[in-house]
């Protein structure tokens, strides 16, 4: 034992050190405990402020959440926004990725910087600027527009912040494309469009799916930018939860949050599956 102690630990052995493991463990507890408590207390049978004392198991707040029309409407709005904005964000992201990957053009670094700007600037700045933009250009959608056209402003905002992320993911995928395939196809007489459709697009597919899942979660998650671009009649799930939280803390919010966490977990799981499909184990 004594001899073992004197030997210096190997340089790679940080993960075997108890103190570092403890930090990892405590860090994980810190990250998960609040969420776990939230989920547990969504089953708490307590009417008022349900989060203080445990009063027995119930699922009635899930029922209540499902029967809360305003909450459900917000939820459907959120899903509609996420689906539509994801679709367009992936298309724009794919185009951006192909341009950056394929072409040499003047001021390319400038364009690259422009595309990554929505990723780095504070959300509040983007939210504020879009709010001002929509109101000052009279792009405010009439109140009685049919669903989902009444959500246009929010959808535009979501596309704007999510497509650069999608472009990043898709571009990573493009880096593994074998250029010779494209040349071979062209030599055999394929047109530019055929090459894109039959060769490049199938190769991009895992990247497109990963980019779409990322855009989808980003859209579903967003609070700040939606907060500034939504009107009184276009409430999304996070906005609705926010107004409920400001009003009071109820087990119903916990139940609704738990449902959203489950959806996010599902999407993350799908994303991971595609990611591992994309990068075969070495």
């Amino acid at each position: 034992m004594a001899r073992e102690k004197r030997e210096p630990a190997g340089p790679f052995d940080y993960s075997r050190k108890l103190s570092l493991r403890l930090v990892f463990f405590l860090g994980s507890i810190f990250l998960y405990a609040p969420i776990v408590v939230l989920v547990i207390f969504s089953f708490n049978n307590s009417r008022r402020g349900g989060n203080v004392i445990w009063k027995g198991f119930t699922t009635k707040y899930y029922e209540k959440a499902f029967h809360n029309d305003a909450l459900m409407e917000a939820f459907i709005n959120s899903l509609a926004i996420a689906f539509i904005s994801t679709l367009i964000a992936v298309i724009l992201g794919a185009l951006t990725a192909v341009v950056l990957w394929r072409f040499r053009f003047p001021l390319k670094p400038v364009f690259e910087g422009m595309v990554s700007l929505p990723i780095v600037i504070p959300e509040i700045c983007m939210g504020v600027s879009l709010a001002v933009f929509f109101s000052s250009f009279g792009l405010y959608v009439p109140r009685d527009m049919p669903f989902p056209l009444n959500l246009t402003n929010i959808i535009i905002a979501h596309i704007t912040f999510s497509f650069p992320f999608a472009a990043m993911v898709i571009r990573t995928r493009l880096n593994s494309f074998n250029r010779e395939m494209e040349e071979a196809a062209k030599d055999l007489g394929a047109t530019e469009f055929q090459v894109f459709r039959d060769i490049l697009l199938p190769h991009m597919k895992p990247g497109l799916v990963a980019g779409a899942l990322l855009a989808f979660t980003l859209s579903l998650d967003d609070f700040v930018i939606t907060f500034f671009t939504s009107g009184p009649n276009t409430v999304t799930f996070p906005i609705k939860v926010y107004s409920m939280v400001r009003f009071s803390v109820t087990p119903e919010i916990n139940a609704a949050s738990t449902i959203l966490i489950l959806i996010t977990l599902l999407v993350t799981f799908l994303a991971m599956r595609f990611q591992s499909f994309e990068e075969p184990r070495q």
């Binding site: 609040p34 969420i35 939230l38 207390f41 939280v245 949050s257 996010t264």
Partner: peptide, 13 residues
């Protein structure tokens, strides 16, 4: 990957 609002709300509890 979990919603920012939900995580903040979880902390609030």
């Amino acid at each position: 990957w979990t919603n920012l609002l939900i995580r903040t709300y979880a902390l609030l509890n």
